[in-house]
């Protein structure tokens, strides 16, 4: 049964072509192909931009209405007495006001992109092609973080531009050069990029879409609420709550720093530290575990 093939096998090495082999930029390209070739991913990214811009427009319209009520004197007294928020100050947050929803969508996207590889078995192909594992995960994280950054930046910029006419009707419009405005717009992207890194790390650690999304929502949305409920118990709870990833991230886009809160830079550093810690844990665990 083997006569024809056992004769003079030529054990020639099919040497790898010099141009071929794993490089980080090639792995990046591979991950880029993966992100762009699943239709639902592309749709989710596009809808994130739409939803964020939509929310910002809604916010701008709200501020304009509020300002009009104040100017008319038709604002209820209790609302008038409330808080530091004058429409003119609040309006400055318009570009980043889609974040609340944007972070939810980007967190889900990041978890889905990696956890679906485990769900479908794709991860085995990925890890066979890039057996070092770390470059593959790092490349995917870079691609998703970059997409998240662009989604945030683009949404905030578009929101700024099309909110101006609405705000302008009540003289609430503002220039990009005003203090903190441009940084807030850029940081809308930075915040989403860091949300993506943390969520992707959760997806890598949990290897499960539902578990990853629930955990991400827990960290970004539920944990702050719990901390607030507990804040009556001790002062340190309130202190610690400022350093939660979501809370710190929100300070990155705040245009006016309130007393005792983190500044844009501090918020960014705290959230960046969280992202690094999650990512490092994910990479170390993946290196050790079986795929």
């Amino acid at each position: 049964m083997s006569a024809q093939t056992t004769t003079s096998p030529s054990p020639t090495r099919h040497a790898p072509r010099p141009s071929s082999g794993i490089t980080f930029s090639r792995v990046l390209r591979s991950e880029w192909i993966k992100v762009t070739t699943v239709r639902s991913t592309v749709i989710l990214i596009a809808s994130t931009v739409l939803v964020m811009v939509g929310l910002a427009l809604l916010g701008a319209w709200g501020y304009a209405q509020l300002a009009q009520s104040i100017n008319d004197g038709s604002l209820p007294a209790d609302l008038q007495a409330q808080g530091p928020g004058s429409p003119a100050v609040d309006a400055l947050t318009t570009p980043s006001s889609g974040l609340i929803f944007g972070q939810l969508l980007i967190a889900s996207l990041a978890v889905v992109l990696i956890a679906s590889e485990w769900a479908t078995g794709m991860i085995r192909s990925t890890m066979v092609a890039v057996p070092g594992r770390t470059p593959a995960l790092l490349a995917k994280t870079v691609v998703v973080a970059a997409v998240a950054f662009l989604v945030g930046l683009l949404s905030a910029l578009v929101s700024y531009l099309i909110a101006q006419p609405i705000l302008g009707s009540q003289d609430l419009d503002f220039a990009l050069t005003e203090d903190g405005v441009l940084a807030s717009i850029i940081n809308t992207g930075t915040f989403l990029a860091l949300v993506a890194v943390i969520s992707m790390s959760l997806g890598i650690l949990l290897r499960n879409t539902a578990g990853g999304v629930v955990t991400a929502v827990g960290i970004f949305f539920v944990l702050p609420v719990i901390m607030q409920l507990l804040s009556g118990l001790a002062d340190w709870v309130t202190d610690a709550a400022r350093f939660l990833p979501g809370e710190a991230g929100n300070k990155m886009v705040a245009v006016t720093a309130s007393e005792g809160a983190l500044t844009q830079l501090q918020g960014g550093l705290v959230m960046g530290a969280w992202a690094l810690a999650f990512l490092a844990a994910a990479l170390i665990v993946t290196k050790k575990r079986d795929v």
Partner: peptide
């Protein structure tokens, strides 16, 4: 294509 890209194939 995604698999090939990792090696520049």
């Amino acid at each position: 294509r995604a698999m090939a890209a990792t090696h520049g194939i």
